[in-house]
Every structure is written in C-alpha cells, then in structure tokens.
Design a protein around this nucleic acid. Structure first.
Length: 303
DNA sequence: CGGTTTTGACCCGCGC
DNA sequence: GCGCGGGTCAAAACCG
C-alpha cells in the first residue's frame, strides 16, 4: 500500500520547492481562524451548490502560486483526494493516493445505501471467523479524501463522532496511524489519522466513504447556515468535504488531479484543493465536479 | 454503566 | 510459499 498513499514524503516530491514550500502553505493557515467547526460538517452538505463558492468573498492571495506549481499527472483510477480541513490550526495540504489497480478493502458503501450494513457486517465476520469463502469479487475501495492539516492535535474536530478502532505503526514514520469509524449506526465512513513524519506539525487525515446522516453540528440550523455560506468545500464524487482552512489537494504523479482554490473559511482563510481521479468509471468526474462546482477563476487544472 | 480507547492478534493482498 | 505491511477485530481497560 505504499503506493496508495504517498504520505508526506512523496507528497513533497510532487511539490518541488518551486514556488512554494510546505511551510509556506502552512503559514497561510496560521492566520485562519481555528473554527471549532470542522470540515466534516461540510461533508454533510452533499448537495452543495456552486453558488457557495460565490458566497465566499475571501480573496485568494498567495495561494495561487502553489497551484501553478503543481505538476500534472496522468489520470488513473485513484480514489483519493486530499483536502485540508480547518480545525484547530488550520492549514493543510492534502495529497491523494490511490488504491492502484486493485482495490480491495470494503465493498462499496455507496451502492448499498443502507443495506450495505449487513453486507459489510457479514463480510467482516466471515473474515474474522474463518473466512471460509472469500467473495471472488474484489472489494471496491471507495474514494478517499486526504487532508493534510497543520495541527497540534491528531484528531481534528469535524462535527461527527468517531470511534477509534485501531492504531498501527506507520512504516518510515515515528508516528502511528489511527483508524476511526463514524459512530453513527449505518454510517460506514472511516477515517485514518496520522502525523506526517517529515513535518510533525502536520496531520494527515484520510476520509473514506460518505456519511449517511447529518452531522451533529449541522443539526443546529444557524450554525449549519453559517457553515454553508462561509465555508469552502470540496467534492470528490462520493463524498463532499468542506474544508475550512487552507487546503491543498494533490495526487501522486501517476494520478491526475486538479487544483482548486476556494475562498477562505469564515472569510479569512483560503483553501486550495485538488481532486484526484476517482474510480475507473468516473475518471474525469472529480475534475469535472470541481469545475462544475467551482468557478473557473478559482479552479486550476494542470495538464 | 455505557461508550470510547487501547492493544495484540488476525486477516489479506502483494512482492519477492 | 513466505514475509511484510496495511487494515480490522474484539476483549480488556479506561473514562465521564
């Protein structure tokens, strides 16, 4: 799986020190507000409207250079996208990785929409007990979105409740990776959180799946409204994220991606995001989505 | 007491 | 076939 997630090291490779540096990116976040609300709430907004960005009246200052630096990649079936959330300390950079040719992991959560629960459960159980029969069909991996966030805390507030179900040491990294699952029943969203070994101040959060319920935070009308109108968001096909801090999305060289610059969160931060290719059938979807969602002026795609 | 975290074991795919 | 690394499970510990 090393190819799947580039982790910071590879991530940096994609961002040679041309116009910007990671640290620079991080700087931006510094001024961002540490909204207590995370981007997860944003995730909730599955039906975002293009106009949202318009609402963002935040200028996109120096972020742009960054985007330009990105190199283009080839479209492949990758399913990860990176974003940056904005929680406590907000800036982040995201990198995408992909599952590569074979995706295995869980079956598509999306297609079930409710009943995948049983399926997954059984799947796990079988696996657990004796794995007598392994479904011949490969498990499909859902699109994943990774966010690199500069934060002191590993587990960022994102409006949803998570239950940690595992932790593993990461190769080549002194920091462990934690695995979380949304505590809401029937919601199979998972997320992995790990600290960048090259930059301990950066936390890489990877989301997988799509929430099938509103976030607790969004339950509050006023708050939700605020978020909706002031947050930037990112959509990657299966899931929608609304990062609130600076975000940079990128994907490995072999994956294609697009970069997007959004307005800042709460009016003061900027976001840069890139979408990685989605699964085979939706290869161009991500970019298409981004372009669809974001005004051309803020969407930059390299090729 | 219920929910969450911890943690070692287990499963599985992949590369050699 | 074997070892490695990533991901998940689940029992025990922990916590409010």
């Amino acid at each position: 799986m090393e190819d799947s997630i580039p982790s910071l090291s590879s991530f940096l490779d994609y961002y040679p020190a041309s116009n910007y540096s990671l640290s620079e990116l991080m700087d931006y976040s510094a001024e961002g507000e540490k909204s207590s609300i995370g981007f997860m709430e944003l995730l909730n907004m599955q039906d975002f409207e293009p106009s949202v960005l318009d609402m963002l009246h935040v200028p996109v200052p120096s972020v742009e250079p960054l985007i330009q630096t990105q190199t283009s990649t080839v479209f492949q079936e990758s399913s990860e996208v990176v974003n940056t959330p904005a929680t406590p300390n907000s800036s982040s950079i995201s990198s995408e990785s992909s599952g590569g040719p074979n995706d295995e992991q869980n079956k598509e959560v999306l297609d079930g929409d409710g009943e995948e629960e049983d399926e997954e459960e059984q799947h796990k159980k079988t696996k657990k007990q004796l794995k007598p029969k392994k479904t011949s069909q490969k498990r499909q991996r859902e699109p994943r979105f990774a966010f690199m966030t500069k934060s002191e805390v590993d587990h960022l507030e994102d409006g949803y409740r998570w239950r940690k179900y595992g932790q593993k040491a990461v190769k080549n990294s002194a920091f462990p990776r934690s695995y979380y699952r949304c505590t809401t029943a029937s919601c199979n969203v998972k997320k992995r959180v790990e600290r960048s070994y090259s930059d301990p101040s950066t936390v890489v959060t990877t989301y997988e799946g799509q929430h099938t319920h509103p976030s607790p935070v969004m339950a509050r009308p006023s708050l939700a409204a605020t978020l909706a109108s002031s947050s930037a968001f990112f959509s990657g096909g299966a899931a929608t994220f609304l990062p609130s801090a600076q975000t940079v999305l990128s994907s490995p060289s072999h994956y294609n991606y697009s970069t997007v610059v959004n307005g800042g969160f709460m009016g003061s931060t900027n976001i840069i995001s890139a979408a990685a290719g989605l699964r085979s059938s939706t290869l161009l979807t991500d970019i298409g989505l981004l372009q669809d969602i974001l005004p051309p002026s803020i969407v930059r795609k390299e090729e």
